[in-house]
Design a protein around this nucleic acid. Structure first.
Lengths: 194, 194
DNA sequence: CCATTACGTTCCAACCTGTAACGTAAATCT
DNA sequence: AGATTTACGTTACAGGTTGGAACGTAATGG
């Protein structure tokens, strides 16, 4: 059912019947639920449409494929704000670890990434969604005094993101404070100057 | 009786027509090719059989699922011998990096792990295939004098493997000696004692 | 009113999955 | 040699998923 709430369309004037925003919302919500419950593979567009109470053509009108739906469901939202650079290197690294853990601690995120990467040999998605948005902040963090020279920021970034991703992907707990502390400890020693 | 992988049970002489070893070889070869070319999802059993010039039933006689075929194609081969512990920590870490790069630097390996982790409830496979066989060697390497105490070996291994894995998954070169050197440098500083 | 577009329902061809049946080929056993 | 056992390819099947097309109905704007 369509609610005649008359939400105004910004930008181009709509000509025909406007798309129901509730369809978008319910589809994306259903996608996240299914990802967490049954994993990427069993999250079919058919299942998404059924759970959302929407027809399959309504889904295909908005997205071209399952990967498209999943990508928007997960990355359509804005990233959380990057933690501040405090000047305390160790403290900043810990904040970085916590931020990455927070983003990957959700099973639907892990399932989605594994599924997307297994489905599309799109090598750039990983970097675009995970690495690139954090690059400037990392440069600020590693630009602090106390960081020894010669540290490749790309490699360091891959070290951090890769470790957390791999741990979550293999089904191990990543929310344990002891893990964050251990990881921060290793990374701190890796970059701190003598 | 035969095992799921088709190997005859020891002691029981084969009675009927023996399985053609060429079928096994061609199927596993085709699997690796498809993984690298089109990714895990599009590597269907049907596509594997067609490329291998073999019928689908011949594949199903040997393996129960795509995950089964992929797992054997990648892990059925013998592991490379573990590098020796020389006593030179930096040298040993470099050997570790080279070994991990050699094992995970191939696109088909990354694709296979992504796909297997995305669809299997058995999240433990990763540890069974990579961590467990090298646990003792890892302990020996990190047990050397010069390594500061309190280093979690699991987290350390996740750092190394995760970094290489992520770099390959994002389509970046991992065979560059400069990369191995940079990675070794970071890991060495991460664990070396004061 | 009329054109345009969205929506749901109903279909469809194509592909992949497992499995089964059939005839043929290759081995062992009596 | 003949019988038995098993592998192989071919063909077929039911079930699921994928995209999309057709059709009638609903909701907007001109």
């Amino acid at each position: 059912m369509v609610r005649p709430d008359g939400a105004p369309v910004k930008g181009a004037p709509a000509k025909g019947r406007p798309r129901d925003p509730a369809v978008d919302a319910r589809v994306l919500e259903a996608t996240l639920e299914l990802l967490a419950e049954v994993g990427y593979r069993q999250t079919s567009i058919d299942a998404i449409a059924r759970r959302a109470g929407v027809s399959r053509p309504a889904v295909y009108r908005r997205w071209t494929s399952k990967a498209d739906v999943v990508a928007q469901a997960l990355f359509g939202r804005s990233e959380g704000s990057a933690p501040r650079v405090s000047g305390d290197l160790r403290r900043d690294l810990r904040a970085w670890v916590d931020a990455v853990v927070a983003r990957f601690g959700r099973p639907e995120m892990v399932q989605a990434f594994l599924g997307l990467m297994a489905e599309l040999p799109d090598k750039d998605r990983f970097r675009a969604e995970l690495v690139r948005p954090r690059r400037t902040h990392l440069a600020a963090t590693l630009g602090q005094p106390g960081v020894r020279p010669g540290v490749d920021q790309e490699v360091f970034l891959e070290l951090l993101v890769g470790a957390v991703f791999l741990r979550v992907a293999t089904g191990r707990d990543v929310t344990d404070p002891g893990y964050a502390e251990q990881l921060t400890d290793l990374l701190h020693h890796a970059v701190v100057g003598a």
